[in-house]
Amino acid sequence: MKRWNAFWFATTPRHSIGAFRIILCAWFVEDFLSFLPGLDSLLVRPGDWLVPSAGLLWMGRFLPLLEAGDCLTALRVFAWILAPLALLGIGTRFSLIALALVNFLLRSWHSSSVYVSHASILPSLALFVLALAPGVRAWSVDALLEAWRSRRRGERFLWADRLAGRPAAVWPIHLILAAAAVVYVSAGVAKLRWAGGDWLSGRTLQWYLQGTAGKKRLGDSTQFFVANRDAPAGVKFRDPWGIDRIANSTMSTSAGRTVGSSRALCAAFSWATLALELGFAFLFVLPRAGQYALLAGAAAFHAGIGALMGIDFGGWAVLFLAAVDWNSVLRRAGEFLPGLHASRAA
């Protein structure tokens, strides 16, 4: 119990959940620019082709409303209103909770066609964590107004102290990083479990990076499948090969196709990927510098995925910014500005 309390509930001025709120909400605003208009095409999806995701099933009572396009349109309007409010910190707690719920419903609905938008899972969960986190009103318009009222009552304080708020429990930051660690380690284990030697030799990665090469031969296909040739003959009545799984989809870039042409490069990237993903098992036992190195490595990893496979996992990289000591950064920025004025005056 002592260790549990020490790990989750230590209070530290090192992290600022308020500053992280600004960063995460800014990412959501940017992401909404493409995500929300993209829902238009799904509005005409026939009911038979809706395969509810787990999230949509949990929110089951909203399902009939969601199937009607009107509700979805309203939810999108709410999302547009709530995201900037949460970003600026206006009615902070309420706008964050509402945004987390609306975003959850929209993403659940979007992923209800046998397509799991992995890139949105962790940021969406992080939004719930933020919504319930202590200290989330730091660096918000709400905090600014409260400080202004206090100043009018005659209280004396430093604005930066007042906006930064009191040191809060570290559990929201640790929870976001722990959730990321669980997903990374699972991804590493899945690679060993399902692809095994093929992953380590670089064959699987090469197969994906060369995927678009097959596009010309397969008409308009971007979605491939894999087969289990060893499946019993009795279950192979659909096709002679035993198609058994949906392959992940990529749109390899020219850089990706270049890497895909070299087995040695693919093997090097595969080993590096595995080391990074399984390395997340040690995230919380590493010294601080090691933690930062691992998180920076993961951010670079996602930049690499974007450059080679054209898949945007930017939201995950944004989560790692939770580990930064934003209070120090913002205070130093505050110190820098008067200094700048002084030097100009001189």
Partner: peptide, 13 residues
Amino acid sequence: WPLTCAPMFANHV
């Protein structure tokens, strides 16, 4: 969604 077993490009070739 939001559950994932994180297959992430892992399959037999």
